[in-house]
């Protein structure tokens, strides 16, 4: 008999699906008075993955935080995934994580062993990324939460924002989609162990290897595809860059099983929030409903979306393949005229 409390049963939404919608966030922050500092080169107003503060001509600090309720029942794995997801924002800015702090909420039915395993998973994943967790803060609450506040470094001239995409760029995505849909289907007991382990491995894989290769090339823009899904994050990149992003649907990588699950309606609520946020900027006339659902599906610990000049992108792809890092060319960037959509899925 199973006596242990299942972590995912303590959470009302899973992983990045718990994220407050981009539209709601924009409303909450509308008219919020902020202060400027010339050293703060990426801040509140940019909808970017992390903040960047310049220390001197060679060093800038990159700061971010990310946390969510359990997406898996194994506490060690939950710790690893939450840490990989939080660290990813540093990689998406082109930076290297160095220090991190735990952010944790403990629900009363969790035993100390479970809490320790979450923390061990996070610590080991951060260490794998080259970062040390030096402290944190834990509270009691209705739902378990775990994540990190991460500090990293980047050369001020090498900061990769989500607003630098240029016409002629090729778009590369470094993890397949379908995480939210599959974890939703898993709650209905429809997902086999093999697929679940594939997904666990993907979510706990750092974007470090992809970042380490990416920074050796001329890259115009980068973000990570997480809670706002491929279409939400593409929309933000397109808006920030003043360009149109074209996504080639046939080349978008996703876990095959996600298509059937999406067609059956195992779609997290976050996907509908993402659609509401982005659809006015997205044109996807010929795309099937399940595929569009996958493109709006929130990804926990998703891959990097990289925008780089075509020649650079081709060479980068070759190096990704050679190094065994997952990567796919998913589209390209063009000029945008006033009435053009920001994202075209074709």
């Amino acid at each position: 008999m199973e006596t242990e409390v299942k972590l995912t049963k303590l959470a009302s939404c899973a992983g990045c699906g718990a994220k407050v919608g981009a539209g709601t966030l924009a409303q909450l922050l509308d008219g919020f008075k902020t202060h400027k500092d010339p050293r703060l080169i990426v801040g509140f107003d940019k909808s970017d993955d992390a903040s960047v503060y310049v220390i001197d001509e060679n060093t800038a600090i990159v700061q971010t935080t990310d946390f969510f309720p359990p997406i898996v029942d194994d506490p060690y794995l939950f710790g690893q995934i939450a840490a990989a997801n939080a660290l990813s924002d540093i990689y998406a800015m082109g930076g290297e994580p160095k220090l991190a702090l735990n952010i944790m909420c403990v629900q009363d039915s969790m035993d100390s062993g479970t809490v320790r395993e979450i923390l061990r998973g996070g610590y080991e994943k951060a260490y794998e990324a080259g970062a040390i967790i030096s402290g944190g803060h834990t509270i009691h609450g209705a739902e378990p939460i775990y994540g990190l506040a991460v500090t990293g470094f980047v050369h001020p001239d090498k900061v990769l924002t989500n607003s630098g995409a240029k016409p002629g760029d090729m778009l590369i995505l470094t993890k397949p989609l379908g995480v939210g849909v599959i974890t939703t289907a898993a709650k209905a007991g429809l997902v086999d162990d093999e697929l679940m382990s594939r997904l666990h491995l993907q979510m706990s894989t750092l974007n470090k290897a992809a970042r380490d290769i990416m920074v050796r090339y001329k890259v115009n823009s980068c973000t990570d595809v997480t809670g706002f899904a491929l279409l939400g994050h593409s929309f933000e990149m397109a808006q920030g860059s003043g360009c149109t992003l074209h996504l080639t649907v046939d080349r978008i990588p996703y876990h095959q099983e996600a298509f059937e699950f999406a067609d059956m309606g195992f779609i997290p609520a976050g996907a509908y929030r993402n659609r509401e946020y982005a659809e006015h900027g997205v044109s996807a006339p010929g795309v099937s409903r399940p595929m569009l659902d996958i493109m709006y599906d929130p990804q926990t610990s998703g891959g990097l979306l990289i925008s780089a000049p075509e020649e650079e992108a081709e060479r980068m792809l070759g190096e990704f393949y050679a190094a065994g890092v997952f990567a796919a060319a998913v589209g390209y960037v063009t000029d945008r005229s006033e009435n053009d959509p920001y994202v075209v899925a074709e």
Binding site: A262, D263, M264, G265, F266, I267, P268, A269, A271, Y272, R289
Partner: peptide
């Protein structure tokens, strides 16, 4: 009583 449920149940029934 929410859009996600409306959409998801519709998809399942049509499937």
């Amino acid at each position: 009583d929410n859009v996600a449920s409306r959409e998801n149940v519709t998809r399942y029934a049509e499937h």
